[in-house]
Amino acid sequence: MLQLYGTDLSSRLLLGTACYPSPAIMEDAIRASGTEIVTVSLRRETAGGGRGGQFFETIRQLGVHVLPNTAGCHTAREAILTARMARDLFATDWVKLEVIGHHDTLQPDVFALVEAARELCADGFKVFPYTTADLVVAERLLEAGCQVLMPWASPIGSARGLVDPAALVSMRAHFADVPLIVDAGLGRPSHASQAMELGYDAVLLNTAVAGAADPVAMARAFAAAIEAGHSGYRAGLLEPRDMAVPSTPVIGKAVFA
């Protein structure tokens, strides 16, 4: 069973709530995925609007854990304030910490990320940092107090999958006891399977499900792929070989010539 900051979880899928064709489809996709953690954001509310309240009520009724993000923040200061506002609103000390460093790739600003993580962890937050697969940054995040790391697979929303599997393998090997979640860039169920076959503990998705022609069916497909990849990893995968190895015994083969 997966454990994140002391919370036991049976699903290894964390799902975003953005970009669905409708709130009803989002709800159905969340249910179909079996996820127990959904990500949400904070945005400016219009006077007398109350739309945020409707969304909040929908999420509350689903009975899942809420993981607020700091999406769109470009400085540690912005991210820290957003995290504090999210804690006040959602009554959770969990935060998906994003500090964006590049407009085009949405690559994390790892320097500001570590700075924000240090302050938030000291303030009692349970930080889920959206980071790269850089091992030194990972070390700094752990030193700051993070107990989970979330490296990207490729840029957010790109659907390119694991562009640097070797870096993710290295990260898994270096941090064997730390829960690692691949966050961002997955486009297909096979990408999620691949991450799980590398020994990752979970994946975080949004666009690949929300942007599918049938988000509910895709949520189900990802859930199955994650389960398959995780089971395969636990079962012990064969290493690739350069040459063929016959599976049928050679000994006892009839000689007809």
Partner: peptide, 24 residues
């Protein structure tokens, strides 16, 4: 939220009012 009735406002204050929204 528990301190909103104790925070007095001054000319030029910048106020942010946020709500839950969809996010990834």
């Amino acid at each position: 939220r528990t301190e909103r009735d104790r925070v007095t406002l001054n000319d030029g204050d910048r106020i942010e009012i946020l709500a839950p929204k969809q996010g990834g």
